[in-house]
């Protein structure tokens, strides 16, 4: 569904991505692991185009989308749940969700999308009139995922969705992600610090380090490899 080839990008003169390669199967959860500063967020942002690619290729559903602008990619069904949430703090939960349905096609389907979001997160329905800035951390994360769902995506990239959440809430986030795959049929690219939980949910995993993909395999293969765990995951 998504193929990344020899991607390059960075900030200013500093190159961060050094030709990572990955392949994401339709209907799967792919986990992307790696230490702080490995370039995981940069990779997701470069795929979406909020960080400008310098070179290489991103193929989405067999189309070259490398240099398309972000809003075109969102329109094509690519969604990003960014690190650090990026909600609209002075809008209500409902208004935040509706902003996700900004583009024409998503707007036409806003009622069904809203149903899907409220079924997945009944809590958000109760909180719909509350300002997003006043939500608890867990509720904010639900709203961010909900807002991304409102864009009617086919591929959702999540950047550390369990960050800063208590273990119980983090576990709920992972359950939600599995539901996005099984109930809604989304393809998922998941970036996480929490290697165990992430591997538990994933069908396939990539290990990133210093802007490159250093290893990949099924979760069982990764867990079984002492070398990978010690070198890149610190566990």
């Amino acid at each position: 569904m998504l193929t990344v080839q020899a991607l390059e990008s960075g900030y200013g003169a500093m190159q961060v991505l050094w030709h990572p390669e990955l392949e994401i199967e339709k209907g799967s959860i792919t986990s992307l692991l790696g230490p702080n500063g490995a370039g995981k967020s940069t990779l997701l942002e470069t795929i979406l185009g909020s960080v400008r690619p310098w070179g290489g290729q991103v193929l989405y559903e067999n189309r070259d989308i490398t240099f398309l602008s972000s809003h075109r990619k969102v329109e094509m069904g690519l969604a990003l749940v960014p690190e650090g949430k990026h909600l609209f703090p002075n809008m209500t939960v409902y208004e935040n969700l509706l902003m996700g349905a900004y583009l024409k096609k998503a707007y036409e389907h806003r009622e069904e999308s809203l149903d899907i979001v409220y079924t997945l997160f009944p809590r958000l329905k109760e909180r719909s009139r509350q300002m997003a800035g006043l939500l608890s951390g867990g509720e904010q994360q639900m709203t961010t995922i909900g807002r991304a769902l409102m864009t009617k995506p086919r591929l959702m990239m999540l950047d550390e969705p369990s960050q800063g959440l208590a273990p119980k809430l983090a576990a709920e986030v992972f359950e939600t992600i599995e539901k996005l795959k099984s109930d809604i049929g989304l393809t998922i690219l998941l970036v996480e610090q929490n290697a165990d939980a992430s591997l538990g949910a994933a069908d396939y995993a990539y290990i990133m380090h210093e802007g490159k993909i250093k290893a990949s395999g099924t979760p069982d293969e990764i867990k079984a490899s002492r070398e990978i765990r010690e070198a890149f995951l610190g566990v």
């Binding site: 979406l48 909020s50 602008s69 972000s70 809003h71 969102v74 329109e75 969604a79 990003l80 749940v81 960014p82 949430k85 990026h86 909600l87 609209f88 703090p89 002075n90 809008m91 902003m99 996700g100 900004y102 583009l103 998503a106 807002r147 991304a148 864009t151």
Partner: peptide, 17 residues
Amino acid sequence: RSVVEDSQGARVCGINV
């Protein structure tokens, strides 16, 4: 308004920032 509040948030909503 969404760009004023959070431009990255606006971008992931498909807004041409």
